[in-house]
């Protein structure tokens, strides 16, 4: 009883923190189900200069799906940017894995001169924020004639060091004896990677996929810096471009945007946790 009494304030504090975290998401999910008049009462004070505060009721007075209908039926722009996002993210993930898996396998399985220095450099590059490399990226992409194309976003992301780091941890956990036994049985290095490395390092790869998906799905700076053509914009910069006059549409679009990320999170949740834990413990 005493123990329960002691933990109660702790739960209360965490509950408050949870509520603070969830509240914006809750607003984003609930607001699109309101009619335009009701939304105006909420959104207009945000743009007004009369000092009034936005009001918000949990339950809509007249719940409606009109905003979703307008978005999904009458706004083809949304689909354009949605599929742009899908194309960019999927391309990045596929090519990232093609680049990162061999790299990570090499770091995890081979000893070569300068390996530690090289790996440290990878880690350092992973820590460098985008703003630092933005200008140099821009110059290189310009010289390559890739500015204002989807490749301007895809190619730099493909060679990101973060996936190598994540996958490396999964491969490093694989006992060397298993790989050696495979070699004894006649497997070459690609077969060892294919039949031993990939299955056993699956959690690292999947956690990389999940984390990178969420990262790329929400990326804003790269497309904003390297793409001028609206037809190539991803979903992440479509939403901020909608003005307050289209607030209802923006809220509905935000909910739809959330759905793929939520699915990926649900599907890859276990691997994500394992990957994060593994990365934290082993390093």
């Amino acid at each position: 009883m005493k123990k329960n009494m002691r933990t109660l304030p702790v739960y209360a504090v965490f509950a408050l923190i949870c509520a603070a975290v969830i509240f914006p998401v809750l607003i984003a999910v609930l607001l699109p189900f309101r009619g335009n008049d009701e939304l105006r009462a909420t959104l207009d004070p945000l743009t007004g200069s009369d000092g009034s505060y936005s009001s918000f009721g949990i339950v809509a007075q007249y719940p409606t799906l009109d905003n979703f209908r307008d978005l999904l039926i009458f706004t083809p722009d949304f689909y354009k940017v949605f599929w742009n996002s899908v194309l960019i993210v999927v391309s990045i993930l596929v090519f990232q894995l093609l680049v990162a898996i061999p790299s990570a396998w090499a770091f995890a399985r081979f000893d070569f001169r300068g390996k530690k220095l090289l790996f440290d450099l990878y880690v350092i590059f992973m820590l460098v924020p985008f703003q630092v490399t933005m200008l140099s990226d821009h110059i290189i992409l310009d010289r390559l004639g890739l500015l204002n194309t989807r490749l301007a976003v895809i190619i730099p992301a493909v060679f990101s060091t973060f996936p190598v780091f994540l996958i490396y941890r999964g491969f490093a956990d694989i006992p060397r004896d298993i790989a050696d036994s495979a070699r004894i049985d006649g497997a070459n290095e690609w077969e060892v990677l294919r039949y031993i490395g990939l299955p056993l390092g699956r959690s690292g790869i999947l956690s990389c996929v999940v984390i990178c998906f969420l990262d790329m799905w929400n990326m804003v700076e790269q497309p904003l810096a390297f793409i001028q053509d609206k037809a190539l914009y991803p979903l992440s910069i479509y939403l901020p471009m909608l003005d307050m006059g289209l607030g209802a549409l923006m809220l509905a679009a935000a909910v739809i945007t959330l759905i793929p990320a939520a699915f990926v999170f649900i599907i890859g949740q276990d691997h994500l946790e394992q990957g994060i834990i593994a990365s934290a413990l082993k390093e």
């Binding site: 083809p76 689909y79 699915f263």
Partner: peptide, 15 residues
């Protein structure tokens, strides 16, 4: 969801 989005893409464009 993706299939629905794919179909709606064409429907929306047609409308």
């Amino acid at each position: 969801f993706l299939a629905a989005m794919f179909v709606l893409t064409f429907a929306s464009r047609a409308v």
